[in-house]
Design a binder for these strands. Structure first.
Length: 586
DNA sequence: TCACGGAATATTTTT
DNA sequence: TATTCCGTGA
């Protein structure tokens, strides 16, 4: 075949082997920095170049960014045909399929996705109903409850076991927790809500129960590729197995040494057992590292060598020299912060851009003291891994209005936006919602609700907003503007830092310009929210934005910098106190 | 029933 | 840092 791309020249032998292996099951063990993305990209290009229909290639990743980036590079490599490749996250793929077929598994009226915050709010409502139970100490917080429920799903274990193993301090509430879990499931079913986990659960169910659907999908997607396979959970592995169907053209790429999401159900057994599930599988290892200098690789090899279960691999590099990693002992948290700040200042003075330096830590709050120190020294930084734009309260508030507008029976959103009003607390909010639900006349049910005299000023304004938005056709952005205009006084009262938050809201309205109507906008906000900060900054490579990177180690995976600091390298911090007592955790 | 303020709490993160 | 929770007083 006459290839436009010079695969032999641009890939090393192992990469080339993976790229050329286009039929049948393939497991690629890709060590850190070994050109995993490159391999996947070239393989996509290769398949397309061979004449495979782009639409029959399905590339599943964990973040939407990863898949976009790969398809973008493949397109650059070959041509626009690569744009036709089906790619996305497990969740967005599940959504696409379920939108088409959910009616086959009991969602006759469609469904809407609730994000983590929504699901926590819903759980919180269940929690409030349980207050009678809490005589012996308080129940877990809503966030903890959401964690427990989600973990149970992702690990495919009963809620009881999760509490027993991971949250023994809540054992005395076991019954209440179990009850709340069931209530939460019921609420979701009643409202046709799916949370993130449900997307996967129901996709699996659909594929299992409907052979015709499954056959159809398998016929459509003849070539599967899965990135970061070590971070898949049981459900995802099952989905892959079902999708691989009879053709078994499935390539999974991952690194057992980089499995860091066990806490949310990722099961590195998936990658260890791939060859059992697909006996014909070929295994290829990528061991040449293009990222790090030798002393660093030597250190990591020693660490990896000690793992009891692993694919044996030895990373090597052709980059000679390089300094040894340094271990610095600090007397106190603040002396650590001062040392790091000072070093960074020196590095910067010697010409290293700030955005080529990173400080990594195990948990977000570990950097609090350093942040203060950096601010004092006037070193600009971005922090990655904290809260995201779309999760912040003010954004959720605005979205809540739009959601209630889109779905008048959305209990979570009504509750949220009603609580924003003066003189309306949980009780009144629920009463109003019940009225709306009972009326069954969409938002007119809301307009009819009444409160005691003198208490309804806020409510009247909200009614006015809704009538206004319903009375005339509006673009998504116009609706956004209307809501923001209504919401600004509330924002100012609620937050001291409202100028910053107001800017966020403007940003949100800008995003809305891109959408023709509410539904895709709301779905995207749940499924593919805009990621601010780090990755954007790096990809755009905006040189004006020269800021130090602070990041959790988790958010740093796959990235690289000129110099990296790891703070709090101390038993109890890193590794975390929660891991110290448990060999597997460690 | 609601608002308010102070205390407690928090792994890690994606969807 | 940023929420969430809980007790108190109105």
């Amino acid at each position: 075949m006459n290839c436009r791309i010079l695969y032999k020249k641009e890939l090393n032998p192992s990469q080339l082997e993976a790229v050329n292996f286009t039929e049948g099951p393939l497991l690629v063990i890709a060590g850190a920095g070994s050109g995993k993305t490159r391999t996947l990209t070239y393989r996509v290009a290769r398949l397309v170049e061979e004449g495979v229909l782009p639409g029959s290639i399905l590339l599943l990743t964990f973040t939407r960014k990863a898949s976009q980036e790969m398809l973008r590079r493949a397109t650059q490599l070959l041509d626009d045909r690569c744009k036709g490749v089906a790619g996305g996250t497990f969740h967005s793929f599940a959504y696409a399929i379920l939108r088409k077929y959910a009616h086959k598994i009991g969602f006759e009226n469609g469904f809407s996705i609730i994000d983590r915050a929504d699901s926590e709010d819903l759980i919180s409502m269940m929690r409030k109903k349980m207050t009678g139970v809490s005589k012996s100490g308080s129940l877990p917080r809503k966030q903890t409850l959401a964690n427990i429920f989600s973990r149970a799903v992702n690990k495919d274990m009963p809620v009881e076991d999760i509490v027993l193993n991971d949250y023994p301090q809540f054992m005395r509430h076991l019954e209440a927790i179990h009850e709340m879990s069931k209530a939460y499931q019921r609420q979701k079913a009643e409202h046709n809500f799916m949370d993130y986990d449900d997307l996967l659960i129901y996709l699996e169910m659909l594929l299992k129960k409907n052979n015709d659907v499954r056959d159809n999908i398998c016929k459509t997607y003849q070539f599967l590729m899965v990135d970061e396979y070590q971070d898949t959970n049981k459900i995802q592995a099952e989905i892959i197995y079902l999708l691989a169907g009879t053709h078994e053209n499935v390539m999974v790429v991952g690194d057992d040494s980089q499995s860091i999401y066990a806490f949310r159900g990722a099961n590195f057994e998936n990658i260890m057992r791939f060859s059992e599930i697909f006996p014909k599988a070929r295994t290829i290892q990528l061991e040449e590292n293009y990222r790090s200098v030798e002393p660093i690789l030597k250190l990591t090899n020693v660490i990896i060598e000690r793992a009891t279960r692993k694919y044996s691999k030895v990373l090597f590099t052709q980059k000679p020299g390089g300094a040894l990693p340094l271990l610095i002992k600090a007397k106190s948290e603040n002396s650590q912060s001062r040392f790091v700040a000072e070093k960074i200042q020196k590095l910067h003075d010697s010409g290293v851009p700030l955005n080529q330096i990173a400080v990594l830590f195990r948990a977000s709050f570990h950097s609090f003291d350093l942040e203060i120190e950096l601010a004092r020294e006037g070193i600009p930084f971005v922090k990655v891994g904290g809260f995201k734009f779309v999760e912040s309260a003010h954004i959720k508030d605005v979205l809540g209005h739009l959601k209630a507008l889109f779905n008048p029976y959305d209990r979570i959103s009504w509750y949220r936006i009603l609580l924003l009003l003066d003189n309306i607390g949980p009780k009144t909010a629920l009463n109003i919602y019940e009225t709306i639900l009972a009326e069954k006349s969409e938002y007119t049910g809301f307009v009819k609700t009444k409160l005691k005299a003198g208490r309804s000023r806020g409510l009247d304004k909200l009614k006015h907003l809704f009538s206004d938005m319903k009375s005339r056709p509006m673009t998504v952005a116009q609706m956004g503007e209307a809501v923001v205009k209504y919401y600004l006084p509330i924002l100012k009262k609620k937050y001291d830092d409202h100028p910053k938050r107001t800017r966020d809201l403007e940003h949100l309205v800008n995003i809305m310009e891109r959408y023709p109507n509410l539904e895709p906008f709301l779905t995207d906000m749940a499924l593919e929210p805009p990621n601010t900060s780090l990755n954007d900054t790096l990809l755009n490579g905006d040189p004006a934005d020269d800021r130090l990177i602070l990041s959790t180690v988790h958010s740093a995976k796959g990235l690289e910098w000129h110099t990296v600091f790891i703070i709090w390298a101390l038993d109890g911090r890193f590794p975390s106190i929660h891991a110290l007592h448990d060999e597997t955790e460690l």
